[in-house]
Design a protein around this nucleic acid. Structure first.
Lengths: 129, 129
DNA sequence: TCTTGACCCTATACGAAGTATAGACATTAT
DNA sequence: ATAATGTCTATACTTCGTATAGGGTCAAGA
């Protein structure tokens, strides 16, 4: 199948597919006489895998590691488990940071209301520190 | 004061200060004979303001709006209130998305353990979709 | 046969918010 | 005079794509 068909099947844009190829996540596909990329089901599966990972905010570097693991079916998957657990930790940290941030923003928001002037704005004054 | 001193006082790096200047967040400062930047307290205050905003993950574009507002002390600060409230909403959304993501990751993590092979890895299989 | 339209190609620039480097110039201390 | 800082500009790099320009390919219709 050509790149447009692959894009439709996976929900990735054509540019993104070429981008992943450039970055080495996807193998260089065969080409037609007219230099069009030709993909098979294996490529589609790999791209779907990549897309699932990205949807979980797994970085391209980590995806490379996972793909390398996948290539050795007999090995232990301990490092896959570790990677996912570390990723969960980092998501957790981000959630924590954002909730801290939300608290500060809300307390600032409580310090002001629409009917004040810029000069007396509780928010802007809080931002001066 | 020179840029190094300003950096120390505000906790911003020298490169970041120059970056903000290029982006128009900070005014172009006066210069010494030797072409060194010279800052006054007003510049330091402005940079501190910017830093506070960035710590709250307010974008540079939004900071520009806030700085423009600050320049007109007699106006109403309603739009400042709105900007902050919208920002709180977007932080909230991010928190929600991340917690969704965490749920999926945790359920995946529960599907596997260290003593399996890549071939039977519950995580990798889940990522195939 | 020619042209139109749909598809594809490469190379490059852009976005956010900085960080890092090279190579040069200015100032201060020894 | 020279060494050590401090500063200057310009450029490249990061992540993960998206967007564009300027072409080439291929099938169908007039």
């Amino acid at each position: 199948m050509q790149i447009g068909e692959l894009a439709k099947q996976t929900g990735c844009s054509i540019q993104t597919i070429r981008f992943y190829e450039r970055k080495g996540l996807l193998d260089k596909p065969s080409r037609t006489e007219g230099n069009y990329r030709l993909y098979n089901k294996a490529a589609a599966d790999k791209l779907t895998f990549i897309k699932q990972c990205r949807a979980l905010d797994i970085s391209m570097k980590e995806i490379e590691l996972l793909l390398a693991q996948k290539a050795e079916p007999k090995q232990s998957c301990a490092s896959v488990n570790q990677l996912i657990d570390k990723h969960i930790e980092s998501v957790d940290e981000k959630i924590y940071e954002l909730s801290q941030l939300k608290n500060i923003l809300q307390s600032m928001s409580a310090k002001c209301s629409d009917n004040k002037t810029i000069k007396d704005c509780g928010i802007l004054n809080a931002l001066e520190r």
